[in-house]
Design a protein around this nucleic acid. Structure first.
Lengths: 242, 242
DNA sequence: AGTAACTGTTACTTGCCGTAACACTGAGTT
DNA sequence: AACTCAGTGTTACGGCAAGTAACAGTTACT
């Protein structure tokens, strides 16, 4: 797995004839032969990511390209049409996993039940999700982070959390600079706790979930209250005079 | 980097003649020609780990065996006399880094200044340490975790924290089962926050340190107080009637 | 009809890990 | 003093997995 960061659009370039690179994006001069594949590529990429997920489920996070392509039922060069290299493919898998987590988590966090309940439910959901694809989860953990929040799984999740957390803080008129470090820290907290749990399995999901959520919750509440924000009896945040 | 876990003592076995495996550890029958190297091996291993650290500092966490051996001034096969494979070597590097962290952290955490101060100081020290060898730190982050707490860096730190945290909880007569998940979570929290900081460098160390320590501190205090343990004015823990 | 952008293949190159085979040194054994 | 064990080190090889080249077939737009 190389560390080199490649432009995601390389895939397109690799195939291009070079002739069509000049004045090209004028609306009328579009060649239908070029554009008709645009959505197909996306679909195919997604399909191959699914195959990769299956291969990783089966062979572990170190699954080779050969195993992935076998799982997709094609030969290896095909993969290289859609992904610049192994790293690119595995980053896409990471993004897939992250999306799963985000999709599972956001709805839970954005209800208007008491905050602590949301945190507890969120942990529960999170643990359930990672247990569904442990190997993919390990891949995500181990995979080197890139700086691109769109490509890297951990970054995707962290960015999402940072955004929503920042919103909350700003709404309360608090310093929002902490959103980023806290979000990344939170992600790490989840990753390591999850990894420990999945590897050891020495504790029920419910139990880890309680420990995890109490960690998160108390950190949140403590920080809030230090800045004059308390949680009232309905479980809502409220700014009180300091 | 293979995932296979190898017995650390393989190195010794690989060289053994096979004849001397039977009744051997009787005190008198020791052959001095065998034993005289025992400490030397340790020393050499440590020396090679140092070289690996230097190579990683220079070439990044993906440094090849060739680069490490070059940095040590020897040829590659030499490395394989002391380390079963690349994974073994890099695990040793991880252990080295973890030891740095533990050595730096424990003295700070075990003073008897107010607890919050210790946490803050600890974060500060931690961030300073990882900034000294960012690439080694990244290696540690990415390196797949093994189940052996003696070999894996993250596990080493987590185990240490789990032990001391467990002691504190037991002293207070509280449920200590949370020590493990919390310790691992704490490690992840530190790893991810550290990684984010080192990669982006968008915030001063002092600032991250404050955010990190407030996260940790409030989690700690909140959990404690939920179980009837408060922090008094001297910053000491005190069990109060519930 | 012609062609652009795919579908896919087999066979190759390259890079790096890990090992084999061999020569030398120096302290401990006999 | 002769022997031998556990080291020191080398160069050269084998093998696996990533990534590329080169080539053949298909389908819808021009």
């Amino acid at each position: 797995m190389t560390r080199r960061v490649k432009d995601v659009t390389d895939t397109a370039r690799r195939v291009g004839t070079g002739v069509r690179d000049g004045v090209k994006d004028l609306v009328s001069s579009e060649d239908g032969r070029a554009s008709r594949w645009d959505e197909h590529r996306e679909a195919r990429r997604a399909e191959l990511v699914e195959a990769a997920v299956a291969a990783i489920d089966e062979h572990g996070p170190g699954a080779s390209i050969a195993q992935v392509s076998a799982s997709a039922g094609v030969s290896r060069p095909v993969l290289y049409r859609y992904f610049a290299d192994k790293d690119d493919l595995y980053r896409a898998v990471g993004a897939w996993g992250a999306q799963q987590v985000i999709d599972g988590l956001l709805p839970v966090l954005l209800t208007d039940t008491p905050i602590r309940e949301r945190v507890e439910k969120g942990c529960e959901v999170y643990l359930r999700l990672i247990a569904a694809h442990p190997h993919v989860f390990f891949l995500l953990v181990e995979h080197p982070t890139t700086d691109d929040p769109l490509a890297d799984g951990k970054e995707m999740v962290a960015a999402t959390i940072a955004r929503t957390l920042g919103d909350v803080l700003r709404d309360l008129g608090l310093d929002a600079a902490g959103a980023e470090p806290w979000a990344h820290g939170l992600v790490g907290l989840g990753l390591s706790t999850g990894e420990w749990w999945l590897r050891r399995r020495t504790m029920s999901r419910a139990a880890v979930s309680r420990y995890l959520s109490s960690f998160v919750w108390h950190a949140f509440e403590g920080i809030a209250s230090e800045h004059g924000v308390v949680v009232d009896r309905q479980g809502k945040l409220r700014l009180v005079a300091e």
